[in-house]
Design a protein around this nucleic acid. Structure first.
Lengths: 229, 229
DNA sequence: TGATGTGAACCCATTCACAGCC
DNA sequence: GGCTGTGAATGGGTTCACATCA
């Protein structure tokens, strides 16, 4: 009951915590110290009851009649998400996407750091992307184990994605973020999240088509989200 | 009743259609002509009943006792998603991510083509990315209207994302794909889909933390999705 | 008084199980 | 016999509405 209800947050709520977190960090920059569920809801473009229920999964961190203390809530969400540590990440594939990810400051700013980039293409090996020297894919296991990496990113072309996944699993990784438009086959205890850029575009394409067909009031679901939800 | 039930596909099913589509295209490459819901389900890592229900929203395109004809089903899904036309897309932001997206063949291969990339940074203007010359952000409206663009991609840093969104809306765009980790404020009739790379990583971080805490049987939700859901 | 935290109602999505058709 | 298509059952997520408490 104290401190560690060792919880299981519903998937849908979990997906919104990072959104609240970012808003809270922004508020903190603006020297805001208190926030109500109403305000948070406004900023996150969701319903206030949803905000309260989502936050209630973390514990009872609000004050009735007042709201939530920004700093404190920020800390609690970070802790819950495991962001009070910085996670080492490897990227498989040093093509356009892999390079962009390695250089993407948004990743290193928010609790992650790239400790390795591998590729099979000899011309890429040895080049430096995102401050890391690209190594040969054969060295993947060695990197993962030396740096205690548990999260891997697949940024290869579709036809090599499964191979990359197999290598990551063999190296002992626990979670995979897959940018290839492929359904990966992995052991059940490995977490996979897929981000499919074209998939998202195709959904927009459907909406646009509906709009053009004069079918106003498209099933908008305004401000969806990959992810998954 | 014939030809045009002018439908509204449930959001969740809609999100899976591009997955089925890609599998069907792959099957077609392998000269497979028929497929059962069972097989499709296996390849998409979902339940067979779900496949059948999803496909039933499109119409009655299967044959009882046999399965689905790959070519025909492919065509129907493409038509439903509006992928029998190629959609022009503009990218706002020519940084790492914008460049990677412009160069990303997966996009142009699957029903979209980049007709413009804009940025505010003078040093980027005039450079060529993904075969397109980067123009000044001021020219956005002109590009959108000249090329009849209805889908825009925001690949700017977070602090410029809202500004980019406003510009896209003013230019008359109908759908936005937002890569900045920001909740955009847009008119209700504009569709927004957000892809937040760090958000997805933060969810994996939670799973990994659960795993480390000995809390086995993590709420895996194996093979989730940005979107998604 | 005012905002949280939460049972209860509602709604959408998933799954089951089988009728219907090839 | 085999597989689709779909009502009905289940389950999860969202929203409502209010008891609760600073």
């Amino acid at each position: 009951m104290s401190e560690s209800p060792r919880r299981k947050i519903p998937e849908a709520a979990l997906g919104r915590l990072p959104i609240y977190l970012r808003i809270l960090v922004d508020l903190s920059h603006d020297k805001v110290t208190q926030v109500s569920s109403e305000q948070l809801a406004e900023l996150a473009a969701v319903n206030a009851a949803k905000v309260r229920k989502d936050l209630s999964y973390l514990g009872t961190y609000g004050t009735r009649g007042v709201g939530y203390e920004v700093q404190f809530l920020t800390y609690q969400i970070q802790r819950e998400l495991g962001l009070n540590q910085s996670w080492p990440v490897v990227i498989v594939g040093a093509g356009n996407l892999g390079q962009a990810l390695a250089n993407f400051t948004g990743i290193s700013e928010r609790g992650f750091h790239i400790v390795g980039v591998v590729d099979k293409d000899e011309t890429k090996i040895g080049t430096v992307v995102g401050g890391v020297r690209v190594k040969h894919a054969d060295e993947l296991t060695q990197i993962v184990q030396a740096k205690h990496v548990s999260i891997g990113i697949i940024a290869t072309p579709a036809q090599h994605a499964q191979e990359a996944a197999d290598a990551l699993v063999k190296a002992g990784i626990g979670s995979i973020m897959n940018f290839a438009p492929t359904v990966l086959s992995v052991p059940r205890d490995v977490n996979v999240r897929k981000v499919d850029l074209a998939l998202e575009l195709q959904i927009l394409s459907y909406y646009e088509q509906c709009r053009n067909n004069g079918l106003r009031s498209v099933p908008t679901g305004n401000q969806s989200d990959s992810v998954s939800a």
